[in-house]
Design a protein around this nucleic acid. Structure first.
Lengths: 130, 130, 130, 130
DNA sequence: GTGGTCTAGACCACC
DNA sequence: GTGGTCTAGACCACG
């Protein structure tokens, strides 16, 4: 949980946000659950509070979490998927790039589908939720 | 071919490199084929020559293209897949992120597999080549 | 009556105060009427008593309510409109921001006027009282 | 243009973002026009670059502006209104609060409609654009 | 040159 | 206690 690689080129705040979303799908974080406070998480991860803040704000913007003033930050318990043309394109680009790169590593169609299958199992939330 | 979106947040040189690799998979570019020169492509795409240069360098580093001094740049005809642990992780991350985001758009397992299938058809090279 | 959204970014005490003022305009609360005690309202709304207290203080400052020591809190029956340059600016800012945002949602002049009309009907007190 | 009141309780970055959107509606900023660079505007307004940055990012998120890497920030020339249920509620709340407050200043229905009319004239973009 | 990210540290409002 | 904003100053990738 809350895995970030500071040597990665993708921003820390984004890795953190992605990691929360992934944690929810894996069932490591449950709807309604309280997230660590900005300061606390900053201390345990030895990151600047602003960085944590930015991750939390990004997640709130996406309605993945809600912040209750003075009380803390919580996993949304009423998340509703939203159709977004831009987002769809973005997802397709991710998959497309994944397929292209996989091809250049010598993967064939079946190898790719197997990899996807494994990942889908790991992220069980995709299969089971509502 | 050579599609780039200058307002996207992914670097232009990378979009360009990706676009070349994708074009090869789609059969739009064939092994041995000559690529436009840096200056020529820079002019037709109204991009900075440095940007084109950087894309070509990236592709050459990945052995997708080769430059023959004084003759031009060509699609490699002897590309050999490299198994690379880091690369594999990277690809998995791409797919994982795609799945997570798709989930948050309301997609289920089947919707995701369908999307992958469509993309695989589009990139037919994955199935047939080498 | 007394609608507050704890996940909203506007302070709860302010939402509460606004809600009282709105209730008066809608005729749900009448001049002279007694408001619930701080402790009572805190319990029924599961809010911190301090929050209710702050809302009541704010309303009293605006002379919308009066507190009679030992007797309770009541809707003012002799409210006199105050012309206040700052307040006027504030109201204009509210409307201006509303118009700007409406525009960015694709609303045109008539759509906006219709929306205002609807709201005016809902808040009938604006037309009839005093 | 770019008016902010540092003593206001609304965040500077938000005032700045609002001011840009308002400027576009007033015709002070045209689609395709280049905005001052983050550093430049920070210097002229004696604000921290991070504050300007946050305002620009907020505007980009709303697709009001676009940033071209290494080139600068520009007013979007292809803005498309998006329907958003939450946003609509927000706008209604703004107007409702405006009406309630106006009432408590002694304004009647006609006074309010006149005020709105004036503001609509000031923001001529609402009337004229596409 | 441009924007984007991050750290350090401060102050504030809210509950 | 909580999150939100702001400043100061640094470093980096991009074009």
């Amino acid at each position: 949980m809350f895995n970030v690689d500071i040597s990665s080129s993708t921003p820390i705040y984004q890795q953190l946000a992605d990691s929360v979303k992934e944690g929810i799908l894996k069932g490591l974080l449950e709807p309604g659950e309280k997230l660590p406070s900005v300061r606390e998480l900053a201390k345990t991860m030895t990151l600047n509070p602003n960085t944590i803040q930015k991750a939390y704000q990004e997640l709130e913007r996406q309605k993945v979490i809600v912040t209750l003033r003075g009380k803390g930050t919580y996993i949304s318990s009423d998340y509703k998927p939203r159709k977004d043309e831009d987002k769809l394109m973005e997802v397709k680009e991710l998959f497309k790039k994944g397929i292209v790169e996989a091809h250049y590593m010598g993967f064939r169609k079946d190898d790719i589908l197997n990899m996807i299958d494994e990942l889908l199992k790991e992220l069980e939330g995709v299969e089971n939720d509502d």
